[in-house]
């Protein structure tokens, strides 16, 4: 049993500490917005924030996240009020299938916290998530829109 702090709440989670954080979040805590895509930190669908920084939760153990502040996609909007990134995503109709978008939004949110007015080069360097539907054109537009909001 380990204790995880997710989206401001404390959860007692019954997993072996070497279980990937992704699976502890999805299966024990029941927050399924964080997705499994590859299991080897290639695709970014599992991106969460650990103390504000983007982390691919499929390769971080649950044990290593103990004592840290974990934020998942479900923790972005507070009391149903969308963040400026989520609003920009809605306004620009970004998602297609949407499966990668939780991770994409988490990666972008961390980028904007770090660099509120990112250049295209900043975006290219920071956003390395895979999207098989190919939403990148709308992702870029929406990032710039969120930065202006």
């Amino acid at each position: 049993m380990i204790q995880l702090n997710i989206n401001g709440k404390s959860f007692n989670v019954d997993v072996e500490p070497d279980t990937p954080l992704l699976w502890a979040i999805r299966e024990q805590v029941g927050l399924t917005g964080t997705k499994y895509g590859c299991g080897i930190a290639q695709c970014g669908a599992c991106t969460v924030h650990i103390d504000g920084a983007p982390v691919r939760s499929c390769v971080m153990t649950a044990g290593a996240a103990v004592g840290k502040r974990i934020t998942t996609i479900e923790g972005l909007a507070v009391n149903g009020v969308l963040t400026k990134v989520q609003k920009a995503w809605l306004e620009h109709d970004v998602p297609q299938c949407g499966y990668c978008q939780s991770g994409m939004i988490m990666a972008v949110s961390a980028l904007l916290n770090d660099k509120p007015k990112p250049t295209d080069a900043d975006i290219d360097a920071a956003i390395t998530n895979i999207c098989r539907c190919g939403t990148f054109q709308q992702v870029r537009e929406a990032i710039h829109a969120a930065a202006k909001a």
């Binding site: 029941g30 399924t32 917005g33």
Partner: peptide
């Protein structure tokens, strides 16, 4: 027209096959 199925894809609420419980 805007897509009808966007909002739940932004908040983690959309249930895909892999998410069913």
């Amino acid at each position: 027209m805007k897509r009808l199925d966007t909002i739940d894809k932004l908040t983690g609420k959309q249930v895909y096959g892999a998410d069913i419980r």
